[in-house]
Nucleic acid binder design. Structure first.
Lengths: 378, 378
DNA sequence: GCTCATTCCTTGACATCATCAACAAACCTG
DNA sequence: CAGGTTTGTTGATGATGTCAAGGAATGAGC
């Protein structure tokens, strides 16, 4: 909850509405939340007194009647820490309440020993909260089966962990409330509140990077399955006579669409094992035929993945993101063709939004999870 | 709402809990709903007075303390009508509050003219509500894009309808509150409250019949997308060099798994155009090699569909249903193999429940939708 | 058989929270 | 400046839940 104020359910809903949908007058907030104007007045009063809300300078005029007094969340009223763990690095960001990144840092992660990792996270948090700039909560995101609110990481393949109470350990080390969440879900939460998902009650986020991922928001709620993953689209079958993936499937989506698979395909085809993914992308942009073809096939696979997700879940919007999403412009044609071909004929076309991606987005997602679960919980 | 009583939110939650989870003591209901025992006493009092709830004869003893007084919904307190429309027939059932079928009827549907169909539905409802046995609400289910609570059918391919306010027309003809819903979603709702989905906050229902369908419950809510379908699994790609479906895709799931495709495949292979689906199934049971193989391939396709749905949505339970679900025992081995092969390696295995199916289940699902939207709404 | 612990259920006092009605505030129009 | 319109505030009211207290109905121990 917000540090001083005791957050009631009503206060929380008004606060979130103002946080997500920008400055709103009391009257407008009342309409959106199906409350009476008097209720909004009463609910916002303590939040104004505590400085979490501010009166905005009055905006548009020209309408009749008393001018509205827009209210807005003071984003600087509290800070959040988001941490993303990968196999060999730790990314951390400090954000304001609207998840705008203020500072970021990046550290190597040498050991996978739990205590070492906790210590590294603790250092990073200290470095981002020094000099009289405390933070309100910490969110940690990583690949694997971590899920919403539970401080325990059931399994993390790349760290080799099983049932590690990472949230509790970091909370003890930092003295800050801490949550742990799957990285794709964290990214999805960030898009839900502060990205292309704002105003959409259902959407999907598909990530392209070393692997493929998918986060879902359905009915305004982030989909999260205890014990099972969600959005496991990497092994969706694209061509049953395609290349093998590492799990022995033929023609998985990840065997076409992941940056690792693309790099491998281009490198072996051109017999240049030195090529990075970015170099492959540059080759395709320059028109190198083999590279172009490989990216086209990736676009086709991605389009089919997106169509399948939309067909099954009924989402109207799919956000494309991830480290390798910059490749979209090279394969947009193949992507759109595959998306159209596989979208069910009774459905309206899917809206696709491509989000330019920087790696700190992962950590930002973790900060949003901290906000949702440890600041605005209950 | 329940005819006499004004249903508050609290009363509704207690009533639904008792309806779905059988007889419960007040204390147990309070624990499940996170209410105080006194609240349950107060909420149930008017429902007991109106006869919607009954005291059960006390059940198990042997524990300490005052024995509990189980409460249960009186299923006979009100009746529901469910109607399922197909291209050429109308099925209607009369059920009690627990969706147990009391009477059913089946009529040909000759004309697709809206007024004619409304008239036929009106007749069926009258026949099921005659002799002093009124019903409380009507639910109508049909294939297409109808969705939750909206009385308008946006599109119905097999009836050739666009934007028909079927719910309002039937309500006017019968004098009963009426809802319209997609048939697969209706079936899913029935499983959620009175079938294998009870107690599961998320599950999927996959139907096998003339086509393939999929309904989703995620976070205790039936997934429904305005304007778009959900659970459109029929055109999921299984083999990219497989047979064509009618939309020009190669190797769609429905080209393997639907009863129509199976019948066609067996009939052409054996050059016996007279074969019905049931006859094909009988051949496979007898060991006819071609028929066996075709059903195995169907099982494989179904297993892949179920795995894909589970991978994307994270559901732990999949219910198999539909007119052709009886074929499961013939293809269980191929189904299980495909399900295992395509289930993501980080996930726990999916629970699969096969529901024996009769056609009146479709109409029963419609009755449950009527119950949810017109009896227990608001 | 009596007491005691235990669990269930009910009752009335109380707290919380939202609405309603009334009204003040601040603007535009003419 | 009067009249209309929309916003925002205030206090009375009502709905809905909890809490504390106690009665009811049982098993356990002596």
């Amino acid at each position: 909850m917000l540090s001083d104020a005791h957050l009631t359910e009503g206060m929380r809903s008004v606060f979130v509405e103002l946080l997500v949908h920008g400055p709103l007058s009391r009257a407008e907030a009342a309409r959106r939340l199906d409350l009476s104007p008097s209720a909004v007045t009463k609910l916002t009063k303590p939040l104004l007194e505590n400085g979490y809300l501010l009166h905005q300078p009055v905006g548009d005029r020209g309408t009749m009647g008393r001018p509205s007094q827009p209210l807005a969340v003071d984003p600087a009223r509290a800070a959040l820490i988001g941490v993303k763990l990968t196999e060999d690095e730790l990314f951390a960001v400090r954000t304001d309440l609207r998840a705008e990144i203020q500072r970021e840092l990046r550290r190597p992660l040498i050991s996978h020993d739990v205590d070492d990792v906790v210590a590294r996270i603790g250092e990073a948090v200290r470095d981002l909260t020094g000099s009289g700039q405390p933070a309100a909560a910490v969110g940690i995101s990583l690949a694997g089966t971590a899920s919403g609110g539970n401080p325990v990481v059931p399994t993390s393949p790349f760290l080799g962990w099983r049932n590690v109470a990472l949230g509790d350990l970091v909370a003890a080390a930092t003295g800050l409330p801490t949550v742990v969440e799957n990285d794709v879900r964290a990214l999805t939460a960030a898009q839900q509140w502060f990205g292309a998902g704002v105003g959409r009650s259902s959407f999907a986020l598909v990530t392209v990077g070393a692997g493929l991922g998918c986060g879902l928001v359905i009915g305004d709620r982030l989909v999260s399955a205890a014990g099972r993953g969600t959005g496991l689209v990497g092994h969706l079958s694209i061509h049953d006579n395609g290349p093998l993936c590492e799990m022995g499937h033929r023609g998985c989506a990840r065997a076409y669409g992941s940056s690792a698979a693309i790099r491998r395909a281009v490198a072996t085809t051109l017999d240049r094992s030195d090529l990075t993914f970015e170099a492959c992308l540059a080759l395709a942009r320059e028109g190198q035929p083999a590279a172009r073809r490989i990216f086209e096939e990736a676009g086709h696979a991605l389009g089919q993945v997106v169509a399948t997700v939309a067909n099954i879940t009924g989402v109207q919007l799919v956000i494309l993101s991830g480290e390798a999403v910059a490749m979209y412009d090279v394969c947009a044609e193949a992507f759109d063709a595959a998306l159209t071909a596989h979208t069910h004929w009774t459905s309206t076309p899917v809206d696709v939004v491509v989000k330019p991606f920087t790696f700190s987005e992962w950590a930002r997602g973790a900060a949003v999870i901290a906000l949702q679960h440890r600041i605005l919980a209950r």
